[in-house]
Computed example of a mutant assay.
Amino acid sequence: MRKLLFPRWLGAAVLALTLAGCDAPREAVTIHEHSAVPDNLSDWHVVEAIDGKLVLNERVTPYDLNTALFTDYAHKLRTVWMPEGANAVYGEDDFDYPVGTVISKTFYYPLATDGSVLNTDDYSADFAGSGLNLKKVKLIETRLLVKRVDGWQALPYVWNEAQTDAVLEIAGDAKRLQLVSADGSSERFTYVVPDANQCAGCHADNHTQKAIRPIGPRARHLNKDYAYQDGTENQLLYWQQMGYLSGLPELAAVPRNVDYKDVAASLDERARSYLDINCGHCHNPSGAADTSGLMLYGAEHDMRRLGVCKPPVAAGTGSGDRLFAIVPGSPEASILNFRVESTDPGAMMPELGRSLAHKEGAELLKQWIASMPGSCKAG
């Protein structure tokens, strides 16, 4: 049996089965038919609450992204599992995942002593013993993407208050939370769990085909080192070594986004990576926002299509009475900044997936646009 590897940032967490002693054996990951999807997340046996910890099953492999989609400052535990003997085939923009693949993403927050949730980048206190310590976190939801013969199925599961299991909520859910930042400030907000159709809407990044596809686990997002328990390894190489990925070219030929927080990278690289993961699934030539003419996906290099001196297709509340998507040197006059900073449902971007503004992301885009030379003045 292959030894499970997990990252050092899990601390002492070794999310593997105990094969000796009196521990009961875990049931294997179970793929349920499309028409017989279970009400409880635990019936999949991918991630489960066991003895006060959220644990991963055998060959359920965690992964991370260079820059991740912002979701109201939630922490995320991402995993992938594929049937024995099956693998994804490398593609620069999309992997061809085998039927039976299960991708999970669990959204949660570190807990404060008073029951509020914390806004922090520190993952170290989330884990103890043999898994995610449920005494220190508040689980919100676990989203599954399951690869069927006819395509991907999106399934939102919402965790109960006891954190013993998550229940399928096709219609989504909403949770009132109080978020506390490191400086002691706090704000109340409503965390919105998307319904199944909204999940499909974001993941169907080709608006014509309307087929659901994974957004995060793509080459440019996965191409990074990950500190596994027995050593640091590039995630793509690790997937290849464990039999989850075939056709991987030399890493030098694989695209790579940067971490938007990495000040060693250029301001342009950081901003473009942030826009790619947060906006590119809609703002691409075949995405839901294709008619806007604003292309924010990673492969776009035409500055006009990126928004520089580009007027909106339709004015109104979404433009904030500003004239251009990006005004070089003037973030305060740019529609992009207005929409990213807004929490008005009629104006904010992205439209789904957040109730709060991402202060750090908004500040990055402000710096990026402020650094741009030129102007939008005629002549």
Rank of each mutant, 00 (worst) to 15 (best):
G151A: 06
E233N: 11
K147M: 15
V89W: 02
I335M: 13
V137G: 05
K310S: 10
H207W: 11
W239H: 05
F107M: 12
V340N: 10
Y260R: 11
Y123K: 13
A227F: 07
A182R: 12
V192I: 11
N337A: 07
Y226M: 09
S375F: 05
S292D: 08
E363Y: 10
G361W: 00
E269S: 14
L251P: 06
D150F: 08
A299C: 04
N337K: 04
D43G: 01
S273N: 05
A125F: 05
H283P: 01
P25V: 07
G115N: 03
N284T: 10
H45I: 03
V258Q: 04
A252Y: 06
P331G: 06
L118Q: 13
I50F: 09
T142G: 01
L118C: 09
N223A: 14
I170H: 11
V47F: 08
R143K: 12
P25G: 09
A265Y: 04
R8Q: 14
T343H: 09
G172Q: 03
Y63C: 04
V327M: 03
R143I: 09
L236A: 12
L41Q: 04
T232Q: 15
L275A: 08
G52A: 06
G172I: 01
P217K: 02
N57Q: 10
W44N: 01
V258K: 00
V80I: 14
C199I: 05
W368M: 00
S124W: 07
L179A: 03
V117I: 15
H34N: 11
T101L: 08
F338Y: 15
N66D: 09
I212T: 12
E92Y: 11
Q235K: 08
E351K: 15
L294R: 00
Y123C: 06
D96I: 10
A315I: 10
G320C: 08
R272H: 10
F324Q: 11
M295F: 15
